[in-house]
Amino acid sequence: MRKYLLLLLLFTCCAFNSAHAADASALFQSLRSKVLSVQDYTADVKMNINVSYMRIPQLNGTLYYKAPDKMRLERHGGLSILPKKNINLTLSNLIPGGNVTVIDMGNALIGAKTVRVLKVIPDDEKSDIILTKIWVDETDLVALRTETTTRNDGTVTMDLEYGRYTNSCLPDKVTIFMNLKDYKLPKGVTMDYNDQPQPPKSTDKKNQKGTIKITYLKYSINTGLTDKFFAAPEKQ
């Protein structure tokens, strides 16, 4: 009897453990399928780029997205600035595809919310993404934060806030934190106007932090954007 009990306990434990792992993996899979259910969207956005060496006003425009990795900002004759290859901007980009290993990292707090933290490692060794940590709100099944380490672009952290489009896992507001290299042009080339001699820079900021905030005003989802559209030059 005691032996049974022990066995049962052991079994339950194992079951619980594997159920736990399965639970994490399932959570990730369902999150991913929810994210991927949006094939494309068009959204009016406000974008604030906040990088110490870049002085860019708030950019208002229309953001076009097509799964898995096409993105385009159109600004009605104005310039569009997006991080290189748009890699870090959308959730689907930051969530690895294919076979993955999901590790449950337990619970954490984001604001007042308790969230599950998942560590996702792609099985494909050639994947650009080495590791992604996802903070998942289990109630709404949305990712509130991701931290993705990529092969080429360092670590990118993204905070997402949801509201009107929770069902499609589309955020109202995204803040992306990225590491950036320093920027410098020779003074002789630019002939800067500096009224006062500038103090030498206090720290050698080889790597600077930058944030990009995108506020989504209105989404149109799955309107059937074609790849061609993203290749076409912008209409003036």
């Binding site: 870049m54 006003p57 104005g78 310039l79 410098k184 080339v189 630019t190 800067d192």
Partner: peptide, 21 residues
């Protein structure tokens, strides 16, 4: 060359100005 937002490269900064500005 038409209108557009203007970028201004300084030695230590990248400045972008909206065309309306």
């Amino acid at each position: 060359f038409g209108k557009g937002d203007m970028i201004n490269l300084k030695s230590d900064a990248f400045v972008m100005l909206l065309q309306s500005d």
